[in-house]
Simulated assay, not measured.
Amino acid sequence: MNAKVLIIEDEKELGELVQLFLEKDGISSVLCSTAEEGLELLNGSSFDLIILDINLPGMDGFEFLQIFRRRSTTGVIILSAREADEDVVLGLGLGADEFVTKPFAPKVLVARVRALLRRMKSSGESSQRISFGNFVLHPEGYALFKDGERIVLSTKEFDVLRFLAMNPQRVFTSSEIYSAVWNQAYGDITSVAVYIQRLRKKIEKDPSNPEYILTIHGKGYLFDRERDS
Score class of each variant (00 low, 15 high):
Gly95Met: 06
Lys202Phe: 02
Ser122His: 14
Phe62Ala: 03
Asp87Lys: 13
Arg225Asp: 08
Pro103Asn: 07
Glu157Asn: 01
Gly91Val: 02
Lys4Gly: 10
Tyr142Asp: 13
Lys205Met: 11
Asp25Ile: 07
Asp60Glu: 03
Ser45Gly: 08
Leu17Thr: 11
Tyr221Thr: 01
Phe21Pro: 04
Gln128Arg: 15
Ala193His: 05
Glu11Ser: 15
Gly75Trp: 03
Glu16Pro: 00
Arg114Leu: 09
Ile78Pro: 03
Leu116His: 09
Phe21Tyr: 13
Ile50Cys: 04
Ile7Ala: 04
Ala81Arg: 05
Asn167Val: 01
Ala3Met: 03
Leu90Cys: 11
Ser208Pro: 00
Asp25Arg: 14
Val181Ile: 08
Pro207Trp: 09
Tyr178Gly: 00
Phe145Lys: 00
Asp206Trp: 09
Ile177Phe: 00
Thr74Met: 12
Leu22Ser: 05
Leu222Arg: 07
Ala185Thr: 13
Thr173Arg: 06
Arg170Phe: 09
Arg114His: 12
His217Thr: 12
Glu226Gln: 14
Asp97Tyr: 10
Pro168Lys: 10
Asn134Cys: 06
Lys24Glu: 13
Asp188Leu: 09
Leu109Ser: 07
Glu13His: 11
Glu23Met: 11
Ala111Tyr: 13
Leu20Tyr: 15
Arg71Leu: 13
Ala96Val: 03
Arg227Cys: 07
Ile216Ser: 05
Arg129Ser: 13
Gly61Tyr: 05
Tyr178Cys: 02
Ser208Trp: 06
Gly44Gln: 12
Asn134Gln: 14
Gly26Ala: 03
Lys102Met: 03
Asn209Glu: 10
Lys107Asn: 09
Ala115Trp: 11
Arg70Trp: 11
Val152Met: 11
Val171Met: 09
Ile213His: 00
Ala96Ile: 09
Glu11Leu: 10
Arg82Cys: 13
Val88Phe: 08
